[in-house]
Amino acid sequence: MIRFLIRRIALTLPTFVALMFVTFVAIRLVPGDPVEVRVGEHGISPERLAEFRHQLGLDQPVWKQFADYVWRLFHGDFGTSVVTNQKVLTEFFTLFPATLELAFCALIFAIGIGIPAGAVAAVKRGSTYDHMLMGMSLTGYSMPIFWWGLLLVMFFSERLGWTPVSGRIDLIQYYFEPVTGFMLIDALLSDQPGAFWSALSHLALPAIVLGTIPLAIIARMTRSSMLEVLNEDYVRTAKAKGLAPWRVIGLHALRNALIPVITIIGLQVGGLMGGAVLTEYIFAWPGVGHWLIDAISRRDYPALQGGIMLISSIVIIVNLFVDVLYGTVNPRIRHGR
């Protein structure tokens, strides 16, 4: 097991190095001198310019700059935003809980509905329910989620007035210091009546929008994995033993059917981060996706560089974790290859 772990981690390292290299090169490919961007359009004396260049390390040879960049990354320095002058790492981790909360709730939504819905469809294979679910799943993963978000806003927020249009909580009514950064938990901790409800109603639509594609994929995957498992000998044995149907399906079949589903869920993380960009943009959700789009429109390239570095690292680590988890539940993967 430990050897497997080490091998997996070793396979990830080159990806990290490549990632550092790409983010380093990318920011140099972006037109526009970082010094000019920071200084703005005002005239500047050559001495000041040289000083700025020196400050940013731009007077060094390129390989030295790269080494410095890597050195700084390892010391937790992901650069400084040229717009706010804040450390990128600080900005990122102030906003990240909002994205994490959104992505987490989206996944809960997707898993909570997708697995039971898919399992039932497999058991009732060929029924109207099965066909309807597969149709919905097809629609779900064909969905342009930015449009889906706008549709839901149009219906639930504008027409029915059930949910707010943007933000994480009603800031006029409720204010409290963030403790965990997760609005739902903070709202509970604040002891202000109605705060939790306000946070939840802000979260509902974005989480549904972000969870739609994973939901569709998980439901479909659970169904097909379940169908395969239901034909296995051990399920037939369990049935023949006279176990109650729910025990056969729930305990014997579903547990084994979930192994590939776990991998699929893990693979959704990258897509979730991409989807978060669109979802946060639509709902003005103050997370890292929204911040990344802002960084582009403000031409804040250090923020973009650091942000992409951080987001990708998170995705790589999560994928590694999923792989290891998969190896744990399925020893064939661990020993094979």
């Binding site: 080159p14 990806t15 490549a18 990632l19 790409v22 990318a26 490919l29 972006v30 037109p31 990258g270 897509g271 981060m273 991409g274 989807g275 960009v277 669109l278 990344l292 789009i293 582009i296 390239y301 973009l304 992409i308 987001i311 990708s312 995705v315 790589i316 994928n319």
Partner: peptide, 23 residues
């Protein structure tokens, strides 16, 4: 490894980065 890298960066984020580079 290059393919691993492309997969590691969320596709929309990577596309945005490429557009930002190309201007």
């Amino acid at each position: 490894r290059v393919m691993d890298l492309i997969v590691a960066i969320p596709s929309l984020v990577l596309a945005i980065l490429i557009i930002a580079i190309l201007q």
